[in-house]
Computed example of a mutant assay.
Amino acid sequence: MQYEIVLPADYDMGTIERRVATRAGATDDFPGLGLKAYAVRRRGRFGSALNAYAPFYFWADPAGMVRFLQGPFRAIVDDFGRPAVRHWVALARHRGPGATSTPVLATRESSTLAADLAPAGAIAEHVRTPALGAGVHSQVVGLDPSRWEVVRFTLWSAAPARLPADAVAFEVLHVSDPELHRLLPA
């Protein structure tokens, strides 16, 4: 799941950094959470045209997502209003060679499935196990069936020399991964 709070162009992103530094520990042991990447986009960095706070979550248990939205998510609503929360059904999860390192960057790639293809064939094409480079921590592929869109989140333990084409990049400020072992077995 992910929500993205777009911030003004002149917003002091240090405010978000301080927020993460003081509050991120609250999800370090959150039940049902596989991984939360406290992610931001900064205008002018990694091709971003805007500033945004855009954390994303890989849930090991859907009940954890519900508990989060009914509980700690209240702080986001109180400070920024209630953003739309996108969520996907996980199709594939891959552990990368950099899984033992802390992620510093994330990318999100999206593609709409062709309307003239049967869903099973179109989805299978996106789920194949990719060749993950040395800097990849992990990757999750999800499906939004309301849009017939496949999304690929990749966490990078080191910034790649070149970002994937059409990828949206996020700097990762902190990672909470209390139940990552349930999503990415060794």
Rank of each mutant, 00 (worst) to 15 (best):
G121M: 09
V104D: 00
A63D: 09
I76Q: 03
I76L: 02
Y53W: 06
L132H: 01
A106V: 06
A118P: 11
L35V: 12
P62C: 01
R86A: 13
G96E: 01
S138G: 12
P145T: 11
G44R: 04
L113W: 11
W148N: 15
L132S: 01
A118G: 08
L69A: 06
R147W: 08
L50V: 09
E149V: 14
G98D: 00
V40S: 06
A99E: 02
R74I: 06
R162Y: 08
F58D: 04
A131R: 12
D29W: 03
A90H: 07
R82N: 06
R162P: 02
A122D: 14
T102L: 10
L155A: 07
V40I: 14
A118R: 11
M65A: 15
P55Q: 02
P55L: 03
L69V: 04
A92E: 11
Q139V: 07
N51A: 00
V151Q: 12
G47N: 05
A90W: 05
I123V: 11
L105A: 02
F58W: 10
G47S: 07
V141P: 09
P103R: 01
A39N: 08
R41A: 08
W156M: 05
R93C: 08
F80R: 03
A124M: 09
P119D: 11
S111Q: 09
R82M: 09
R128F: 03
Y57G: 00
V150C: 12
Y53S: 03
V77N: 04
G81W: 02
A159L: 13
R162L: 14
V141L: 10
V136E: 01
R42W: 05
V151A: 15
A106F: 07
I76V: 13
V151W: 04
E125N: 11
G98Y: 00
G64N: 06
R128Q: 14
A63I: 04
R93D: 02
F80A: 04
N51C: 02
A120K: 12
R45N: 14
V136Q: 01
P160Q: 00
V85G: 02
A37K: 05
A63C: 03
A99C: 07
F58M: 04
E125D: 15
L132P: 00
A63K: 07
L155D: 00
F68H: 12
N51W: 00
L35I: 10
F68D: 13
R108L: 15
A99V: 02
W148M: 14
P97Y: 00
A115H: 15
A158Q: 13
G98L: 01
T129M: 10
P31G: 07
V89L: 13
R41M: 06
T112Y: 11
N51M: 03
R41E: 11
R128T: 15
L105Q: 02
A60R: 01
